[in-house]
Amino acid sequence: MLTVHFVRHGESAANAGNATSDPALIPLTEKGWAQARAVADSFDVAPDLIVMSPFERAQDTALPTIQKFSDCPVEIWAVEEFTYLSPTRCANTTAAERKPWVDAYWGSADPDFEDWPGTESFSHLIKRARSVLSRLNGMTGKVVVFGHGQFMQAVRWLVVATPHRIDSDAMRSFRAYDMSNPIKNGETLSLDHDGQRWIYNQ
């Protein structure tokens, strides 16, 4: 049996409403650091593997858990956040300022659109999420993955909704699911794999 705990990073500067630029370098707030410590406190037994995103806010969230279980192996996987708006265009903007662009992106429901440079399509996000689930499949024990809200949502949506095609309808379905099932900063989602299928522990 495999148990995977996906942990969303603690509150970041962007989550707090501050202007940010490089999506990979957004820092945690003091509240975010407190959430990171609370995550570490929630684990009584060392995991068999700690996985983290290459993004700063996820790695900082993982740090207290890594320090608590210093003998646990740590790996960086492609579990970074879904960046679908061009970082160049969005430089030094707040979440509120980006909202019209966000609404337009999801309203278009084009799963293959890429807002170059430095972005990926919705189809690619789902491909990444499937790849991570495939990589985890076959492992045993307990794995803790420190990542990001929309990536975690993609993983959960794949397990719960089991979409067969990634088209405009699927993209709309994902967006509706994401908006109605928000993942909070510092929240943990748990999945089990029994050797045959993934099970989401609500």
Score class of each variant (00 low, 15 high):
49 L>V: 02
34 A>T: 07
119 T>L: 02
93 T>E: 05
81 E>F: 09
82 F>R: 04
47 P>E: 13
173 S>K: 05
1 M>D: 13
165 R>H: 15
133 L>H: 06
196 Q>E: 12
89 R>V: 09
88 T>K: 14
141 G>P: 00
10 G>E: 00
159 V>I: 03
163 P>I: 03
136 L>F: 07
11 E>D: 07
25 L>T: 13
181 N>E: 13
60 D>W: 14
26 I>E: 01
41 D>F: 10
149 G>Y: 04
82 F>M: 07
22 D>E: 13
145 V>H: 00
188 T>W: 06
159 V>H: 04
112 D>Q: 06
15 N>R: 12
120 E>D: 04
184 K>M: 15
68 K>V: 04
196 Q>D: 10
100 P>V: 05
148 H>N: 06
198 W>I: 01
94 T>Q: 06
157 W>R: 03
84 Y>W: 12
110 D>N: 11
149 G>S: 08
91 A>S: 07
147 G>W: 00
98 R>N: 08
13 A>G: 12
160 V>Q: 11
135 R>Q: 11
174 F>V: 06
194 D>H: 11
2 L>T: 09
185 N>L: 07
138 G>V: 03
154 A>E: 01
26 I>S: 02
22 D>Y: 11
189 L>D: 00
159 V>S: 10
70 S>T: 04
114 E>L: 11
49 L>I: 02
68 K>D: 05
186 G>V: 00
37 R>E: 10
166 I>W: 07
166 I>C: 08
139 M>S: 12
129 A>V: 10
25 L>Y: 10
23 P>T: 09
67 Q>R: 13
1 M>S: 10
57 R>S: 01
130 R>Y: 07
97 E>P: 08
183 I>V: 02
120 E>Q: 10
54 P>H: 12
24 A>G: 09
10 G>F: 00
48 D>T: 08
111 P>M: 01
123 S>Q: 04
132 V>A: 03
149 G>F: 09
20 T>S: 09
138 G>M: 06
144 V>A: 03
101 W>Q: 11
174 F>C: 02
182 P>I: 06
197 R>E: 10
1 M>W: 14
116 W>K: 15
145 V>Q: 00
178 D>K: 07
157 W>Y: 13
65 T>C: 07
14 A>T: 06
42 S>C: 07
118 G>E: 11
122 F>S: 02
117 P>H: 08
139 M>A: 13
150 Q>F: 06
8 R>K: 04
74 V>D: 04
79 V>T: 02
15 N>I: 03
147 G>I: 00
130 R>N: 08
148 H>G: 06
67 Q>E: 15
42 S>I: 01
125 L>E: 00
97 E>M: 09
152 M>W: 12
195 G>N: 09
92 N>S: 14
8 R>Y: 03
165 R>E: 11
23 P>C: 08
1 M>R: 14
116 W>M: 14
66 I>C: 13
176 A>S: 12
117 P>D: 06
14 A>H: 01
196 Q>M: 14
19 A>F: 07
43 F>S: 07
68 K>G: 03
176 A>L: 06
1 M>A: 15
146 F>N: 00
160 V>D: 10
164 H>E: 13
134 S>R: 15
81 E>P: 02
154 A>S: 03
175 R>E: 08
84 Y>V: 04
90 C>R: 14
191 L>P: 00
169 D>F: 12
199 I>H: 06
163 P>D: 04
202 Q>V: 14
105 Y>Q: 05
202 Q>L: 15
103 D>G: 13
86 S>N: 12
